[in-house]
Design a protein around this nucleic acid. Structure first.
Lengths: 351, 351
DNA sequence: GATGCTTAGTTAACCGTTTAACCAAGGAGA
DNA sequence: TCTCCTTGGTTAAACGGTTAACTAAGCATC
């Protein structure tokens, strides 16, 4: 691995000149430029970003810390952020915490140690936020993505969750549904609370009372969707529609439907947050609140880089992006729903 | 952001002593240790990994370059590699190329520039491998993951693709199927060729001729699965089973089934590479060749770190891991398959 | 008391860049 | 011819760590 000194020697110039032609910081005569470029090519020289970072005190490296890469919501975010960062000549690296606060702590510490210029963070739920606060006060810019962290001030890109939920539930109400169940995310997360709130608002608008028995708290993971839907189907209690607060849980809900021989929308209506485009075709027929995930990633990255470069100063800014409701086949008019339980499960689940 | 000098001042010791207590490189008396630790705590000091890297010429940073994070095969790999790297105190960062060779080139250049100690690479298909070769000769260790790169020698962790395909097709043959179609990956990729080869071997073992009309080349992306399955269903040509060479294409195949009103396994048997556990329940009933993705990630990371640390020297080693065939509901005995076309599609596709 | 061996700590060189400060030479203006 | 700019280049001091080489002090041995 050759260094700038070797390049300088080979081109018979000083290392300052090499640096200048590489970075274009000063006029250099054409023939010296050519000699330097030739030397670089011949040696396959790659500037040492680490030495540079040490001197200029910035690395042009951005970290992205996500709670769960298996959640199909995140790939879009990653793409958006990566593209935007690359366009502005930053290097974006991704790491995931598996929703474990301990891992998050380690990752933030590592990124800080490597002097990343900034971090895009979708934090794992947890009450201890000292590591985040420390990261910020140490001088690393942080932008919250999708999940704000209560008690910590920072730029953020968030979804208008209440609005998404409200529109979705309105749609169900327009279809004549009155007993609409909701499977929420973990209510420690603000976005989960907002979605619940949108649900309640929509009901109130239509003078439908909020029945606490129809509000089921999940945790955004597959298993909870499965469990709660199963419970819901057993009691039934007049429920003709379910609103599920994220895509992963919806998959679990479908599992429960299949085990119980329930077909959608024949036997029940289903609407969900998140679009599962990669998924089984029946999902592409899902009525869904779709989040502009690519845009969210892109805007968060922009915010972060603007903050780093000082184009953005002063109080934290919070960008709210709005989701769109896509109405597809999984919701039907209330009077078309067959409310009696199917007599026999179509197929048993296997482990 | 405080430095080692400030810590040294505050603890009234030399910077060498600070370094020594942090790294445990030399005996330091208990009271000095305590003073240093106190200073570190009070200043919230975080050692500058970049300065350290410059001096010791290694960063303990590993890069993982993947072609497509939306492919559900990769999260498992990432987890395995991340865990293993963390255990040995390396920092693993991930980036994805979207199957574009240009992005791969940029990412490798960036990782080299940041002096990553090593790279786990699942390369995008493409004939130009000079950037990979250059990365290696420049001194960065590279381990190929899942996809070897022809013409470049390096350690690798690969799946025994032929074996997986062979066992799967044997299973179909045992169920009495004779006209078995295959939807392959892009045959420029070695793993796609190996899967095809396994398919052919299994057929030959049973004296079933390989009918070229039943070999359809896809590209591992959803759309190709959809298109080829549709084509297959239109011609039908006595096909009673389909073997799909990756999970993403299988989703496309399911879309085609649904559009045509074909049910599985009632109307046709389906077996696939990859397990789509996150997916819709019908997928969890899929007969599948499942790859030990966590293990692959873990072993690749181990190989890489061993190579970096010099515990592993000499010729490249290639680890072959073996997949397991999981037989579930999507395959049925040939005589139970209803071969006539359903008269009317159950549901139309929407955009 | 001189000598040598440990032990605990410090000094200073170095890693590969960037960049402020400096310098030499050529040309313009007086 | 002398001074003063420009222009195009070089020198050398950082940046924040690590670590080999060194020193000082304490102790045992003779």
């Amino acid at each position: 691995m050759s260094t700038i000194v070797e390049v300088a020697k080979r081109a018979s110039v000083s290392i300052a000149t090499v640096s200048n032609v590489i970075r274009g910081t000063k006029r250099v005569s054409p023939d010296l430029q050519e000699r330097v470029h030739a030397a670089i090519r011949e040696l396959d020289y790659s500037p040492n970003a680490i030495a540079r970072g040490l001197k200029v005190k910035q690395t042009r490296m951005l970290g992205m810390v996500l709670p769960d890469i298996t959640n199909p919501f995140f790939p879009g975010i990653i793409r958006g952020a990566e593209d935007t960062a690359f366009d502005r000549d930053y290097f974006l690296v991704t790491a995931n915490t598996d929703e474990q606060i301990g891992r998050e702590r380690r990752l933030l510490a590592a990124l800080r140690s490597y002097r990343a210029d900034g971090i895009l963070l979708a934090s794992a739920p947890g009450s201890d936020v000292s590591h985040i606060r420390r990261t910020i006060t140490s001088g690393v810019s942080v932008v919250f993505l999708d999940r704000p962290v209560s008690g910590v001030e920072a730029d953020a890109v968030l979804l208008d969750n209440a609005r998404g939920a409200r529109e979705c539930v309105r749609h169900l109400l327009q279809f004549g549904h009155r007993r609409i169940a909701i499977i929420t995310g973990p209510l420690t997360l603000q976005n989960a609370r907002e979605r619940l709130q949108g649900y309640e608002e929509a009901l109130r608008e239509s003078d439908v009372p909020v029945d606490p028995a129809l509000v089921l708290e999940g945790d955004y993971r597959l298993e909870s969707g499965h469990r709660l839907a199963k419970q819901l189907l057993e009691e039934r209690a007049g429920v003709s529609a379910i609103f599920v607060c994220n895509g992963v849980m919806t998959v679990g809900v479908f599992n429960a439907f299949e085990e119980a021989g329930v077909e959608c929308p024949r036997d029940i209506s289903l609407a969900t947050f998140d679009d599962l485009t990669l998924d089984h075709s029946s999902h592409s027929h899902l009525t869904a609140v779709v989040q502009p995930s690519y845009e969210m990633g892109a805007r968060a990255a922009t915010l972060l880089m603007d903050r780093i470069e000082g184009r953005l100063t002063g109080d934290p800014v919070v960008v709210r992006v709005v989701p769109t409701l896509v109405i597809r086949d999984s919701t039907a008019r209330r009077d078309l729903i067959r409310m009696e339980q199917p007599s026999v499960p179509r197929r048993r689940a296997r482990s």
